[in-house]
Amino acid sequence: MVGRWLSKVSAPTLIEAIRARTVPGYLDLDATRLDGYRARLPFLDPEADLARVHSVGGRFIIPGDKEWPSQLDDLGDSRPVGLWIRGTGSLRLLALRSVAMVGARACTAYGAHVAGEISAQLAERGWVVVSGAAYGIDAAAHRGALAVGGVTIGVLACGVDETYPPGNFELISRIAEQGLLLSELAPGEHPNRFRFVLRNRVIAALTRGTVVVEAALRSGALSTARRARDLNRHTMGVAGPVTSELSAGVHALIRSGGATLVTDAAEIGELIGAIGDDLAPRPSGPILPRDHLEPAIARVLEAVPATAEGAPVERLALAAGLPVEEALQKLYELGSLGFVERFGTHWRLAKGARSVPR
């Protein structure tokens, strides 16, 4: 609502209009809501808020500032009025190559390991990891990036001078030193359930894509994923054990087509990175010695039965579709390479080759 008003009038004009009850009719502000805003005005002290954020090395930015990330404008009327930032990096530049990592607070050891490992891989590839500094997947994501000397951004549901949750005090302090903390809430403000939901939209809009690691069917992480999808950002999910309730939400998201399955940082980078520059290597199994054989000799090898008695050359030639003389030559070549051995008038797989998958 406030964002829609600020698209029509300036913030000082709006505040004075609320204080003097002279709000223009086109702003569509009913009397009840106007009274609520007027009741809160005496408790606002912008100068004190600025002094408080400056005392912790922070600042306040608004749309149009050099540091403002223009992708937040995709939120339209729900775009933050401004952001309080703690840290020395440029939010606009750091957010250009960033990815959100979100998930369950009460995560499993598997979820924490995966989130930390992928975040470390992303940081090593020059990506900035963004999360909410909460327990569980959020904390694992931040720690993974920090562990390899990467930069990470914590989007808070409280003031940037507050520590929530308290158990993450050291982690949040480290993020402020090595990355950025940001919030749309003024210094001193404390979190509540509604503020976490609002925080999620900032995470989704700020980044190039959102990865969900572990989420139940009713999870705040899924709301971030839905926001990202609505904003035409890439939404990705990491599969987990089918027996885990914390995997059900992610699996449902992937199955419905709302997210792309990813397993590592390379696959994430291919989705959200520059075309042609962040391609993931094509997964493949191990290369076996038989993979280098020419087609004709490979057909002869495939014809040799995996039995102790083997088979005569005539039967092998027929199975390989080759003349007997050519098949015999190929068998001797295979013998030189250690694939087969002669057993009387028969040919069989060499002992070492019998246990190799065909």
Rank of each mutant, 00 (worst) to 15 (best):
I275T: 13
D277W: 15
G321Q: 08
E294M: 14
A311D: 08
A320F: 01
A296G: 01
S284Y: 13
R299H: 09
V300P: 00
L318P: 00
R290N: 06
A296H: 09
I287A: 14
I287G: 10
V300F: 03
L318K: 10
V324P: 02
E294Y: 02
G321Y: 00
V313Y: 04
A308K: 12
G310D: 04
P289N: 07
P305R: 12
A317C: 02
A320T: 03
A320C: 03
P295Y: 10
V324W: 03
V300S: 01
R290Y: 15
D278R: 14
R282M: 12
L318E: 09
L288C: 06
P289S: 11
A327F: 00
L288F: 15
A308G: 07
I287E: 06
A296E: 06
I275S: 12
R282W: 14
L279T: 15
A303H: 08
A298Q: 09
V304G: 02
D291L: 05
V313M: 04
G285I: 05
E325C: 06
A296K: 02
Q329T: 07
L322R: 07
P281Q: 13
G321H: 07
I287P: 14
I275F: 15
E309M: 06
V300I: 09
A298H: 15
E294P: 13
P283M: 13
P295G: 15
H292I: 11
G321R: 08
T307M: 00
I275E: 13
I297N: 01
A298W: 06
E309L: 00
E314L: 04
V304Y: 03
R282S: 12
A317H: 00
A311F: 05
V300W: 04
G285N: 13
A319L: 07
I297Q: 10
L288D: 02
D277N: 10
R290M: 14
L301G: 07
P281V: 08
A317W: 05
E309I: 12
E294T: 11
R315G: 03
A311K: 13
G285S: 10
E309A: 10
P295M: 09
K330D: 01
D277Y: 13
R282H: 12
A296N: 04
A280D: 12
E294I: 09
T307R: 07
A308C: 07
E326Q: 07
A280T: 12
V304D: 11
G276C: 09
A308Q: 09
S284A: 11
P281S: 08
A320H: 00
A317D: 05
L288A: 13
L288N: 02
P323V: 08
D291M: 03
V324N: 06
D277E: 14
A274L: 14
G276Q: 11
D278C: 13
D278I: 11
A303Y: 00
E302K: 12
A320Y: 03
G310T: 11
A320D: 01
P323M: 02
L288Y: 15
A274I: 14
R290A: 15
I297T: 05
A308R: 11
P289H: 15
A327S: 01
A319P: 03
A320P: 02
D278G: 05
L322Y: 02
I287W: 14
I287Y: 13
E314C: 00
V304R: 01
V304Q: 06
Q329W: 09
R282L: 14
A320L: 02
P312L: 09
A327K: 04
V300T: 05
E309V: 04
P281L: 04
A296Q: 02
